[in-house]
Amino acid sequence: MDTSVLVRMYAQMQLVRRAEERVIEQYHWQNREFAEKRNPPHTIKCPTHLSIGQEASAVGLCSALDVQDVLVSSHRCHAHYIAKGGSLNAMMAELFGRTTGCAHGKGGSMHLVDTSVGMMGSSAIVGGAIPLALGMALPFKMRGEAHVSVACFGDAAVEQGVFHESMHYAALRKLPVIFFCENNGYATLSPFAARQHVPIYARAASYGMAGIRVDGNNVVEVCEVVREAASTARAGDGPTLIECETYRWIGHVGPDRDAGTGPRTKEELESWIERCPITRLRKQLELRVSKEVLVQADADVERKLDDAVAFAKASPSPTAEDLFHGV
């Protein structure tokens, strides 16, 4: 893969990682403020489901998509939004509940949307957005347009009926859909083995579509697998199910780690931190580009995030008059 593409992937993964670490910093700061019985002026008051550790899946996916390709996501949608090219300023402002947010403060962290780049929104009902991807694919097929529609979801969505109905119908109609599952092994704290006994990618066979399992922490592999699935879909040959094996380092919701408090052991977390998708790519890049290139990429990420946080904090909050807009 071209070095410049790899550098871009690295920068995108860093952007996702650092954006979420900014969210963590903000949460920790405001928690201290509240503990001191101060009323902090700038706060994030919405449930945030972080993707730290899973960045390669979202970035690998979106690196293989065009801007006309569309995507819907789940409650854990920051990475998909950023990787698809969603506005950082509008995302931060949305988390801070400001009128300049991507949903004008109506959605929050779980409902990020930027239609200008094909990020069509996110559902906080597990599996709920999967059928929406079929609907977005249908007009592509009807109009003969070679675009792709992607449903991003986690492993627990496979347990929902709409996953199976949607797989079935997309295959039947050969809709240009990519079913993109990030299997991080847990539904909150409930381990995969307690919930499912068939590998996720293997489900595809019973619906007559290709199912592929990929190392979700290898951004290049993810990108290549998605490219193939997208080219199949664009050619009118139907959908593909992709299962990315990955791991989230943080708890299901909120800013903190939960390893060691339940079935997720510290040893398990450590083993996945060893497989950090960003460190992995950085090590490869250090052999191919000068150190300055990566330092510059990191600095660009921080500057963008400084701007986004400042933009959010400077933006006005909605008023009661805004309540009914968009119903």
Binding site: V70, V72, M120, G121, G128, A129, I130, P131, L132, A133, L134, G135, M136, A137, L138, P139, F140, S149, V162, S166, Y169
Partner: peptide, 9 residues
């Protein structure tokens, strides 16, 4: 859900 997604487009 497919109807909803189609409406987006």
């Amino acid at each position: 859900g497919m109807g909803v997604g189609a409406a987006f487009m």
